[in-house]
């Protein structure tokens, strides 16, 4: 009997050790980061393509104020309410004292400079598919933005989701580096895929999630319940979205549907970003969406 208890205790310890190992953060190594200076001009395009301001500008910020990344917007979900942090270059309240590698690890690996996992409300799962150079350029651009001294607000998340180490398990289960749409793609479709699946993180809202909050990649962009619990986010595959590629590209630029109704809800922020991109990028996104199965 005593031997049996020892065996069980050993199993529990072993499980704990394995669990601790597999949930460990997985930061980038020095070899993953090219030695080059970021290009702030390209970084500005990455900034709009990645929609940083939509979450990190102050609530209700419009126009130039969207470049002040003071944080504070709230994101209700099944797991609790998340508050976007201050990511302005303020060294005290923002991320001004980070290194470039800290920033790359945050955006692409979901790991904080202190080695903690971030919650996947921050879409590092899809930003992880971006080119490292693009995120270096983004870092160079973000250093040029105004500082703001608003303190970040703590997330309102209950147990067990409050145990950040458990997010290592979540990442292991649901983080995938590979593309959803695979195979040989023409350059425009490849660019569209990069904008939709990596920087634009469209799937974070438009793809349904499983009960643990992992994206259901087999139902890619087919719409999902709104995380606030009110209404639905639409299916944007050709099965439901019957707009032409030029309708889609124009909508992302001027915010009007083909019938000249206007965009509403969260898409208003998305369009504020997309309208800053070159027309060729909006066309690439439209071509990608039209080519979905």
């Amino acid at each position: 009997m005593r031997n049996f208890l020892r065996f069980i205790l050993g199993l529990i310890l072993l499980g704990g050790v394995i669990g601790w190992i597999v949930t460990a953060p997985d930061p980038l190594s020095a070899a993953d980061v090219p030695a080059r200076d970021g290009d702030a001009e390209n970084g500005e395009q990455v900034f709009f393509a990645a929609g940083c301001a939509s979450c990190h500008s102050a609530p209700e910020a419009e126009g130039e104020d969207r470049l002040v990344l003071a944080g504070g917007r709230s994101f209700p979900s099944d797991f609790g309410t998340f508050f976007a942090p201050n990511i302005s270059p303020d060294p005290e309240q923002g991320i001004g004292d980070w290194s470039e590698r800290d920033f790359l690890n945050a955006v692409m690996r979901g790991v904080s400079p202190q080695g903690q996992h971030y919650y996947p409300a921050f879409p590092y799962g899809t930003y992880g598919r971006a080119e490292v150079e693009d995120i270096q350029d983004l870092w160079a651009f973000m250093a040029t933005l105004p500082t703001d001294a608003t303190p970040s607000r703590a997330h309102d998340v209950g147990f067990p989701f409050s145990v950040r180490r458990s997010l290592g398990g979540w990442k292991m289960l649901f983080s995938q580096d590979d593309w959803v749409v695979t195979g040989e793609l023409a350059p425009e479709l490849e660019r569209g895929r990069y904008l939709v699946e990596a920087l634009g993180h469209c799937g974070e809202c438009h793809t349904p999630r499983n009960p643990l909050g992992g994206l259901q990649r087999d139902a890619w962009l087919t719409g999902a319940p709104h995380p606030s619990g009110d209404g639905r986010i639409p299916d944007i595959t050709p099965a439901e979205l019957t707009w032409s590629a030029s309708d889609i590209a124009n909508y992302l630029n001027d915010g009007f549907t083909p019938n000249f109704d206007s965009a509403g809800g969260e898409m208003v922020e998305v369009i504020a970003n997309m309208s800053q991109l070159p027309a060729s990028d909006r066309a690439a996104i439209a071509a990608y969406l039209r080519a979905l199965p």
Partner: peptide, 8 residues
């Protein structure tokens, strides 16, 4: 378009 969207 953005003035329509801002209100909506």
């Amino acid at each position: 378009g953005s003035s329509c969207g801002s209100c909506h």
